[in-house]
Design a protein around this nucleic acid. Sequence first.
RNA 1: GUGGUAGUAGCUCAACUGGCAGAGCAUCGGGUUGUGGUCCCGAAGGUUGUGGGUUCGAGCCCCAUCUACCACCCCA
Length: 469
Amino acid sequence: MARLSRTKKKELYHSIKGARDIFGDEYRLREWFIERAKHVATFYGFGPIATPHLERAELFGTTLGGTTDVVQKQMYAFRTRGGESVALRPEGTAPIMRAYIEHGMHTWPQPVLFWYAGNFFRHENPQRGRWREFYQFGLEVLGTEDPVADGLVIHVAVLMLREVGLQNVLVHLNSLGCKECRAVWRKELVAYFRKHGNALCKDCKRRLKENPLRILDCKEERCREASTNAPQSVSYLCAHCKQHFREVLEHLDDAGIAYVLDHLLVRGLDYYSRTTFEIFFEKPGESAESDNSETKTEVGTEESEKKKLLALGGGGRYDYLGEVIGSRNVPAVGMALGVDRIIPLLREHGKIPKSLQEPPKVFFVQLGTTAKRKSLHLMEELRKAKIPLAQSLSKDSLKSQLRIASRLGVFYAAILGQKEALDDTIIIRDMDSGAQETLPFVKSIEYLKSKLRGKGQPRPPEITDEEDE
RNA sequence: GUGGUAGUAGCUCAACUGGCAGAGCAUCGGGUUGUGGUCCCGAAGGUUGUGGGUUCGAGCCCCAUCUACCACCCCA
């Protein structure tokens, strides 16, 4: 091992920028959310798929669009020792379309429905809810043009959020049209912005040449003003696309999903066509109470109002992606939820189950070397008997072991002392009453089983460690 | 990639206008022989994010850098 300076060492035990460790309750919360989302998706007929974290870099370059930020600056792309150019996947849709074509899924009953969950990677500057390695839960419907597929994807996405207690979600949506009508609209848009070119910010002047659609979701005040009267994609939709969009809206109406039309919603990936959408969570009950709660009405309208909502998910239709990858016409629609953005909301607004893990009910205590050496074997006997057990074998004193046992809130302690270890007996201590009796070890299993049958869940060892905020 | 704010023990934070770096929580041990929740005592834990500079002297001032948060950009 090379010797490292103190500074180097310090770097060594810090995760790299935009990446983090997930453990404890956050891990359990995340598992729980994914479990629920999976449950909903499965019910609606989505099957599982996992694609590689590494793909040919080209797969993303050609599909997402050469001018998009994701491809231009955010992709973790590198050459392997073998000389291939590969990339850590920045998104999930292109790989799934690749898989669809690679495995000839067009021979399956159409459409093919997939859910997926996993890590994705984008090299951008981290901020709230944005990581370089992040986790998405996504849905894809491949092989149909039917607007009900769009409705289904949005519906299931909203249901997954409702399932975990995030009731108030609002869908922003738009339609970009197909190749034909999108081209017409785009032309008009360029003409419009040419006329108002001076009003645009520096970036948007560049976008006007490269990717004029993106001017619409520029956040600069001046560009937003310029955009208000810009030609809207929906008014350029061809008859076919118009009908398609109308039917999508009808499906959402019928499903009781709240949505607003957002003419500025364009999205950054080139492969989108027709329906595009983003899903927002609205905090319930924003109404300020009028009591004397130390009125913050002084000057402070800034921070309370400007709280911009973070999109929890987004997606859309990508009818041309199949042609780009495999010269095959595969109309499809999909979406992804940003799990990292959902988890913090769950703590405040979610319907989290009381305990995310099954707490142990019995604590195994050992005393002395003979007992300690028998412990591993005896614990396995208890595991076979399906008795949820905890232990702290590395501790030697009885006191510290019981201390831990009581903190865990177990019902019983099974105490194996020097004497018991020699006798093949064990002491069962009732942690509430303090009463205890010595039993032959073989009998203690049945004894514990019958005792535990009556007991419910022990008080869980506090699942959430942060109460205020 | 750009801008703003901030970094002191594992966590939450102290330390006057520059003058010996501290507390609570958590951890570990102990409060006589093999019995927990409360309580008491003790220990360990830091080159003040890092590297320079100014100064007799820097946690504090200056510069750079890294990281986090916020915003832009973009997106989930």
